[in-house]
Design a protein around this nucleic acid. Sequence first.
DNA 1: CTGCATCCTACATGATACTG
DNA 2: CAGTATCATGTAGGATGCAG
Lengths: 127, 127
Amino acid sequence: MYVVNNKEYTCAITIAQDIFNDRWKLCIIWHLLEGEKRYKDLFESVGEITQKTLTSKLRELEEKHLISRQIFPEIPPKVVYALTPIGEKLRPILNEMFDWGIDYVQEHGTLKDGVVCEPKFSSKIDK
Amino acid sequence: MYVVNNKEYTCAITIAQDIFNDRWKLCIIWHLLEGEKRYKDLFESVGEITQKTLTSKLRELEEKHLISRQIFPEIPPKVVYALTPIGEKLRPILNEMFDWGIDYVQEHGTLKDGVVCEPKFSSKIDK
DNA sequence: CTGCATCCTACATGATACTG
DNA sequence: CAGTATCATGTAGGATGCAG
C-alpha cells in the first residue's frame, strides 16, 4: 500500500492519475518541458484556460512538487515556473503520449492544414 | 491540424488526453493489459466503480477503438472485452506511468503493508 | 450476467470584475 | 504582471431499481 499526502493507493498508476487527471495539468507540464516560463507566457501558450483555473492548477502542481515557483521582487511582478526533477521525469511519458496520438490519428483521423505542436524530446538542461 | 471524430486538435497530446482523461478509463485499460476480461471481472477488479459508469466507460472506449467487445449468445449472457492493437500500444505508457508513480512515492510518500498492483510489462500475446 | 433508466449531487471550470 | 473574488453551470459520476 502506498501513502501519499494522506491518501492510500493500491496501484502506482492511480497516483499518477490522481495528479494529472484534469483538463489542464498535462498541458501546463507539456509547455514547461520547453523550459521555465512566466505566468503570462503560460497563460498565452496553454490556450483557452482562464486565469483563475491557471492559477489554481499551478498551485496544485506546486503543492504536489511537480513544479517550482520563483518570485522576483520587482515592479511589475515577475513569477517564473519550472519543472522539478520529478516533474521533468514526466518527459518520456508525455512524448510517448504524443507519439501515441500520432499513431491514433493515422488510424482513425486525418491531417489538415495548420500548425501543430512539436514533441519535446530533449531536455533543455542538455543544451 | 489533426482531425479526429470531427474534433480538431493542434497537439497530439490533447488527443490522448481527450481519450483517457477521466477517473476510470486508464484503470480499465490497465486491467485489460492482463488479457481479455468479462464485464463481471472488470467490475470486480477495477474497484469501486458503479455498473452505470463501467458500462458507460466501456462504450466510450469501444467507440474510440481502444477496446473490442465480443458477445457470446449464451444464457446467462457472456461479454468479453479486449484491447485493440491501438489500445495495446498504450502498454509502455501505462508501465512508465507506473514507474513514475513508484518514483513519486519514494520522494514524497511512504510504503505501508498491504497488497499493491504489479506492472504489466509483457504482452500476453507473447506467451 | 450484462446491462439500461432515473434521479441526484459535487466539483471542475468558465465569465467577469477587481487589486497590489 | 500576477494574481483574487464572486457568481454561475455543465457534466462526470454515484445510488438505486428494473429488465432481458
